[in-house]
Write a protein that binds this DNA or RNA. Sequence first.
DNA 1: TTATTTTACGCAATCGATTGCGCAAAGCGA
DNA 2: TCGCTTTGCGCAATCGATTGCGTAAAATAA
Lengths: 337, 337
Amino acid sequence: MQKKEVTIYDIAQALQVSPATVSRGLKNHPSISKKTCQKIQETAQKMGYRSNALASSLRTSRSFTLGVIVPRLDSNFMSTVLAGMEKSAVELGYHLIIMQSFETLEKEKECAQLLFNHRVDGLLVSTSAETGHIEHFAPFLAKSIPVLFFDRAPLDPHPFSSVTIDNHRAGYELTRIMLQKGATRLLHITGNTGLRVYKERLEGFKAALKEFNLSYSTDNLWQTNLGVEDGIRAAAKILQMHPLPDGIFVANDTCAIAIINHLQSNNILIPGQIQVSGFNNDPFASLFTPQLTTVEYPGIAMGERAVETIIDLIQNKIKTTKKESLDFKLINRSSTR
Amino acid sequence: MQKKEVTIYDIAQALQVSPATVSRGLKNHPSISKKTCQKIQETAQKMGYRSNALASSLRTSRSFTLGVIVPRLDSNFMSTVLAGMEKSAVELGYHLIIMQSFETLEKEKECAQLLFNHRVDGLLVSTSAETGHIEHFAPFLAKSIPVLFFDRAPLDPHPFSSVTIDNHRAGYELTRIMLQKGATRLLHITGNTGLRVYKERLEGFKAALKEFNLSYSTDNLWQTNLGVEDGIRAAAKILQMHPLPDGIFVANDTCAIAIINHLQSNNILIPGQIQVSGFNNDPFASLFTPQLTTVEYPGIAMGERAVETIIDLIQNKIKTTKKESLDFKLINRSSTR
DNA sequence: TTATTTTACGCAATCGATTGCGCAAAGCGA
DNA sequence: TCGCTTTGCGCAATCGATTGCGTAAAATAA
């Protein structure tokens, strides 16, 4: 039923040359004459040949495949990063196998294992919330397969590369905006502070408080999942407070908007009574009333840099691991004064 | 420097058995004794063996890889679908190579070609805006590699499977909501109506108009890219109209919100003067004031169904192509009366 | 014309895992 | 103990492409 696959052997036979010549001719190898190359490519076309990437990868032990592990795919920010990654990867002749860890260490391990067996040329990881150690990436190190963390990286020191933003400074500056406008009772609503990104934003937050001679208490640190429902719950809790806080640092836009929305419908004025800041600059952050003060987090660029860097590592254009920090941009809008 | 890969041959040698036995022992083949299996797996572990998926795929010509082509990754809806796909795929022992067509036919072709060469076991496609014909998927058909369209499918008849929603009915019902509340001058702001999804929503829109004895004119059909800026532009144009429309059908939430926002800041009351409906039920659609009437578009479920179906096709559990239509849910909120 | 360099191509081993078929040893009943 | 069925495992071909090395033919130089 199924016609057999056309291979370079079939082409070789048809043209009365050796498979070696066909293999070379197909990729315009200099030691094959122009004429022969042309002939080979034509007949390949005619015979419906398709190169077998598997066989090629097996032989050369290069798959031109990058593995990507993310906590989840369905997040605005993450899909932006992935878009950037895919674009750069394709431009450089690679492609992506994307997997989700669902924020669990166990899944992350499984993904790593699978991608390891699949002979990816490099691995791009944004760690799960549970990722305390990184032993499961040791096999990659042992085989000199580059691993690069993006956005969420483990704490230093670690023997891998990374592309992140300076979350400490972003947290600091965002907090400073609210403080400069007179806020004195700040709340910090964030994700799992076991994660470096959140931890660093928190440190920046603390540094700003200190600068303004305000004390920090863990009572003002709320760890949530930063979803819409978490925001609504947080807002409800805020309404119970006496006195109300006068500034809220929220570690992403979705949750920030949810909080604002719920507070507003309980007649709290934003920013009049409470200033609120977000993080990410999601597309809708500017469409809200008030418009959200936030940090533009360069998703596309981060994806591109991550891929470019890891491919440089793969191709040995750079020899040593590299920790990059991308520029972010403070978006100062009307949800803070 | 680099230690050599451990293969089943090495294990075979270490255990004084044949590679065949090792291969079978590794996967608990019934014709190998429990004892031997155990021994093999232990030494494999000890020697740091990793199976070579490439070699295996080459031999068996099954890669357990699904190719996915989407117009772009960084869309809320698409990333949701992909999340569902990845989840189901992994559960069923497959994984995903994801590529973007950037809405161009040319890129879509290139992706298809690459995935074809990479021996994917199946292909999941959401077509680009330019995709008029589908000849570039013919090679898959010729090799009996299942192709399944999700969300955006080409016009029937075509020899492939699909998972979509009933866009006609969704468009119809959404329109009907506004009409029942008395709207008589409706605008339809949508994407490229060359795409079946938009075309069908428009047909539904027309059907509803007809039912209410309202005439349809192409003047009331605006094709845009449905982004934030497109919304702002559209809103500006709307403000010039005399009389104003009293209902706007917008084919996605992002654009709808942008329009509402711009109209509101020009003192138009929503839904008082103009009703507006969206499409997708993005997470923030309920956080806006007014909350957006929209259609819940089952992203995760669509991804899951698509993968489950294509794997059934791959494994020949179902023999014929299958066109599935998923349930959507009308979310009737306050942006319509 | 002869010697030398270039050009163009072929040989054959190799990358690891899989599997149909065959065969020997072990287990069984009588 | 003999013959028959199971059980457990090995042989060797195969999946396609790649590549270092060698060589014949063609081109160039002398």
